[in-house]
Design a protein around this nucleic acid. Structure first.
Lengths: 348, 348
DNA sequence: CTGTTAGCGCATTCAC
DNA sequence: GTGAATGCGCTAACAG
């Protein structure tokens, strides 16, 4: 037995469809008695308004689209949790799509969401996405859009994320404060915007402390494929540690880099932080259970998602002036744990 | 400039709406020239069919609903990835909702999905959900439904998951084979079906090896709140290790139990597996980077999601006989790592 | 080959 | 107070 419609109720109660419609929406035009009858009948028969029809009629789908690189990523899923919270509270449901870091897929996701009639889009661009024209284009067709997490100052619109440069600066600064001078960085890239900001923060901190920047202490891995990423980390860690003057500390700029690095160092028998200190970026769940517990730059993932969704909803509802674009930078926070403990001069 | 409609194209090209509609769908009734004109015009003007209208017309939304306990869980998100893969491939998009382990919210999710007009539902029931009547009820209204991950033999329908009893049996058996006799289990529950199956597997393995079952070696923690879970693990681990005859090995039946246990043991200064061996359930990503690498019963999360989605889609498309319900049990696999290494008699 | 008509379920004028 | 009529954008049956 498929769902009942307004007409079914109307027929059963010997009323017209429009009367029933109004009664259910508690319109002032309908008499108390009639309302009562309709409401009761509807409840008793589990009437559910057909949202497709309602959507079509009102030109609103009641849903918003979310594009992320991958669902299967703890940082992303925490942001999604935040998004879901805000959207559910506001009565929107979310359609999540994955770009898998591919620009082509990202475009395809956007197209689908548009066709689906979402009322707004939240997007964290793919790593491959250098040019944001297709996202800017969304505005042209009147689609409210908020960028989150992977934000860009080249995108003049609503954005929610953290200050990546600042986070990296703090991390590096912390290592320096703890007595480390020779600090290496393992980053992803090139051409990934937030990653280069983190790189910049690292350099700025060195400069601020009059520590020379050493080319050979900075390594990049491309995140395109997991296997190669792991290999790349392994190669670079080995190479760093075998340098004539190896670094005393390492700043790894993403979760995967951090965990793989730790794993390689364990394999090679290095002690952390005695042999080399370590600080990562964004990891929270894992940080505590690693050995040693990993110091990290904490990013408020849930909050990023929530704030971005709230912003988007405000845009949709139209309470916001479309003119004043703004970038919301949530504060990062240093979670200091054992992996970056104050340096002790190695015994000879 | 909002989206253009079939009528816009029709007017522009001086054709009727239905001709345009047919042309775009490459109907045999339309002449080559006309098709060409329409197609070109549509592409040039970025025509996107309105899916809400299409859905209403066809009575199909092209979307399926997914209910999970929480997005923010690596195991769940890997299953979602599998679901997304199958659905995207089949042209469905997914609407994900979270029950947060609450029965009331689970029911609310189901209602919303129904109202939304999803064509089918994939659900992994909340921990609170003992009685599955509301899920069985979905069938009554003709909603194709597939249970995944948290399956139940009390539910006579389509289900995809793993054999939890078997997995626990294998894990325990493995510990025994490696020389451990006094084996404790830290489980969640009571009243969580898959958890009690894991408990059963543990007991079965002991019995099969003529090892007496010891009440004091079996501990339960309730997963309702994270904080209390962590505390509960801590309390139980301490208490286990302080027993007159402490266990030589521990089987932790969920990811959170495993990681918290590891963390507590580290804090207390226990060596793994020298002081106590450890084997967990379902973790994959983490297992390798923990210290020591954690042996686990591997569950093919992605596959579970994929298979469940494929099943559901087959049901929706109607290729399946609705009579022959079946439970698909995917094989678990033991991933042996260092935490459960062969026992070495401790030196005195 | 192309156009006309009808209707999916709902909300909203506008009459009565 | 209530109901008839209209249309959201699309597809499909049926005419031409």
């Amino acid at each position: 037995m498929p769902n009942m419609t307004l007409r079914d109720i109307a027929n059963a109660l010997d009323l017209s469809v429009s009367t029933v419609s109004k009664a259910l929406r508690d319109s002032y035009e309908i008499g108390y008695e009639t309302k009562k009858r309709v409401m009761n009948y509807a409840r008793a028969n589990h009437y559910l308004p057909n949202r497709m029809a309602k959507s079509l009629k009102e030109g609103k789908s009641g849903s918003i689209g979310v594009v992320v690189c991958s669902i299967d990523n703890s940082f992303v899923s925490r942001m999604l949790d935040g998004i879901d919270g805000a959207c559910t509270a506001a009565g929107y449901d979310i359609i999540i799509m994955q770009s898998k870091e591919s620009l082509a897929q990202e475009k395809s996701c956007l197209k689908q969401l548009e066709a689906r009639g979402v009322e707004g889009i939240l997007i964290s661009p793919a790593a491959e996405t250098i040019n944001l024209d297709h996202i800017v284009g969304l505005r042209a067709i009147g689609m409210p859009t908020v960028l989150f997490d992977r934000i860009s100052e080249r995108f003049d619109s609503y954005q929610v994320g953290v200050d990546n440069r600042e986070g990296a600066f703090l991390a590096t600064q912390h290592l320096i404060a703890n007595g480390y001078m020779r600090i290496a960085m393992l980053n992803i890239g090139p051409d990934i915007h937030f990653a280069s900001l983190r790189g910049k923060g690292y350099q700025d901190a060195l400069r601020a402390n009059h520590i020379p920047y050493r080319e050979e202490y900075v390594r990049l891995c491309n995140p395109s494929s997991r296997d190669t990423l792991k290999d790349c980390v392994s190669t670079n860690i080995r190479s760093l540690l075998e340098l004539p003057t190896p670094p005393e500390a390492l700043f790894t700029t993403t979760d995967q880099l951090s965990t793989h690095s730790l794993s390689v160092m364990h394999q090679l028998g290095y002690q952390i932080p005695q042999d080399i200190a370590l600080i990562g970026f964004s990891n929270t769940e894992l940080a505590d259970i690693l050995t040693p517990p990993l110091s990290t730059v904490y990013q408020p993932a849930f909050e990023i998602g929530r704030k971005a969704a709230e912003k988007l909803i405000a845009l949709i509802v139209g309470k916001e002036e479309p003119e004043e674009y703004e970038t919301v930078m949530l504060p990062v926070q240093l979670d200091i744990r054992e992996s970056s403990r104050t340096r002790i001069e190695p015994k000879r």
